[in-house]
Design a protein around this nucleic acid. Structure first.
Lengths: 154, 154
DNA sequence: GTATATGCAAAACTTTTGCACTAGG
DNA sequence: CCTAGTGCAAAAGTTTTGCATATAC
């Protein structure tokens, strides 16, 4: 099983952000860097509203519309990734983590992370069979884990 | 790729629905049967609003709140399944279809269904590498489809 | 008849947009 | 300066809820 390490320091991500903004002839803002920072430090998946609440702890005037605009920008530029966890609305996480999928026990709820290179490669082939460019994927395997198989007999 | 067959006739699904409703001591309604029927016949993934629009063709007074309530009920009872295509909101499809995964265009929202036997087989192997028994899975490939790749340049 | 389902309207959210102002380069 | 980014408020879109009425059983 692979561990989902952060692949980059926060400062390195921020430098890439500044470079990307300059490349596009845009302007930086402290809000953009703050959002990257909040997501990096949280290590979890945050909703736009949660992110805004976090920023408001330091700057009361943070507006939710800017948060949405920035999240859209950061996602487009691949600094963050969106997740739809079934509940309403999207959640975001920093993109600079190792990619992983999830294997979830339906009985005890345990979640393991894994990467299978064969599946990863095959997904790209499936996409290209549709003449499509694979951007990302989400895969969850629902199982009964070893422990639960031993403890429950029907 | 594979065509996803309907595994059951509409009438058979409706009979199961009536049975399920009776079992739960509830009452049937033509709206519930209509929604099953619309999803069955469409063969695609419809949003609540699209479903409501469809019902309104025959009964102008169909209310969107009933559609939401019915969709929640039908999902809970496993007659339909929800899909979150990344775009805003859920979409629903009839549950009595062959297993398939989804390939979703992030740009136009188009959803295709596919089955890749190699991935299916490999998923079982991944699960057994964890000594776990695979029960089911959910996989979504997010892509930019052929049409959108041709029409948009970043 | 009685409990459940529906329709309607309003409320509760979530996300987007227009516009004046701020601020980065 | 000049233009992109922000904050604010309002709009637009989505989903839920309260309540009176209709309807299945």
């Amino acid at each position: 099983m692979k561990v989902k390490n952060r692949l980059e320091t926060l400062e390195s991500i921020l430098e890439r952000l500044r470079f990307s903004i300059r490349q596009n002839g845009l302007k930086n803002s402290k809000q953009r860097e703050e959002i990257i920072s909040v997501l990096y430090k949280s290590g979890t998946h945050l909703s736009p509203e949660e992110i805004a609440a976090n920023l408001r702890q330091r700057d009361k005037s943070t507006s939710i519309s800017s948060v949405y605009r920035i999240l859209g920008f950061l996602e487009k530029e691949r600094f963050i990734t969106a997740l739809e966890p079934g509940k309403t609305g999207k959640r975001y996480e920093i993109a600079a983590k190792e990619h992983h999928d999830h294997i979830i026990c339906l009985h005890c709820g345990d979640i393991q992370e894994f990467v299978d290179e064969e599946i990863e490669a095959r997904q790209i082939q499936v996409a290209s069979a549709y003449k499509a460019k694979l951007v990302s994927h989400d895969m969850r395997l629902f199982v009964i884990c070893d422990k639960c198989r031993q403890h429950i007999k029907d």
